[in-house]
Design a protein around this nucleic acid. Structure first.
Lengths: 139, 139
DNA sequence: CGTCTTATCGGGAATCATTCCCAGTATGAC
DNA sequence: GTCATACTGGGAATGATTCCCGATAAGACG
């Protein structure tokens, strides 16, 4: 299970709700929670249910359109990140406003694989997230 | 808040429950959830409440005695890891049995700080966890 | 266009981990 | 011993996420 990232997109119907969720995510470059996206959509007058928001968010992740980050308090946050063809990357996230910058660290990738191999671990993947305060939130 | 890791241990009473929770964690080198620790203790005949398990687990983290990892499904897992004086480190965790190996990557630390600084982020910290299958679970 | 099949909706119930509340209990100080 | 109070624990409360399932609408076909 989960040996490969699920990148294969199956046939899906185009619905207003699905587009609305995607637009809501696309409007910001920050990681946002399902609850947050739902609240925003309702505030905008969208007619959509919470279940549907969760459903689409998960679909985006399955299709490789979005990345997920679990905040320290356990809440899941989502952000659209280049499609599946984009290179594997990590994030530098503002702890205050949620703004995220995509970052790459080739050295980290190889280091992770090497360490895992040295300890006899296989089928390896890793999570690397850097949290901090962005310039505008620093004040 | 949280500018410094809470390493300063305040006065605490020595209780059976606290010792029991610590022993339960010390008995394994794996990351274990609060629910799991609670179940184990009860199974061993310990008289302890779930609230108390959560309370002590959090205390260990605050005192720098334990590390936390949030599993992909959001559940928090804990593991005793050298006291506060020990060097900052990360983990190589078996996705199947939860066994964890403490690892260090000085290069990663400096890389993380550099990337953050380049993007104007301050008050930085990071999470780096490597997941895989340990040799014994690989079969 | 109508019709039909069925993926998708949505809203409320159900789960589940974690936190809160607070009266009862036991630890450590004097 | 005695006392102040930190610690307990069981049940209620919270909050995010998932489930369930009848209602709705997308898309294929004629």
């Amino acid at each position: 299970m989960a040996l490969m990232a699920a990148t294969q997109q199956v046939k899906r119907r185009a619905t207003n709700q699905g587009a609305a969720v995607k637009d809501a995510l696309a409007a910001e470059d920050t990681f946002r929670s399902a609850q947050d996206v739902y609240a925003t959509l309702r505030a905008n007058g969208e007619k959509i249910g919470l279940s549907t928001v969760y459903r689409h968010l998960q679909i985006f992740v399955d299709d490789g359109l979005a990345d997920v980050i679990h905040k320290p308090d356990g809440e899941s946050t989502y952000r659209l990140c280049g499609d599946a063809s984009t290179t594997h990357h990590h994030h530098l996230v503002c702890r205050s406003c949620g703004k995220a910058v995509e970052i790459e660290g080739p050295a980290v990738e190889t280091w992770a694989d090497k360490v895992a191999a040295q300890n006899g671990f296989t089928d390896v993947n890793h999570t690397v997230e850097i949290f901090g305060l962005c310039a505008s939130c620093a004040g």
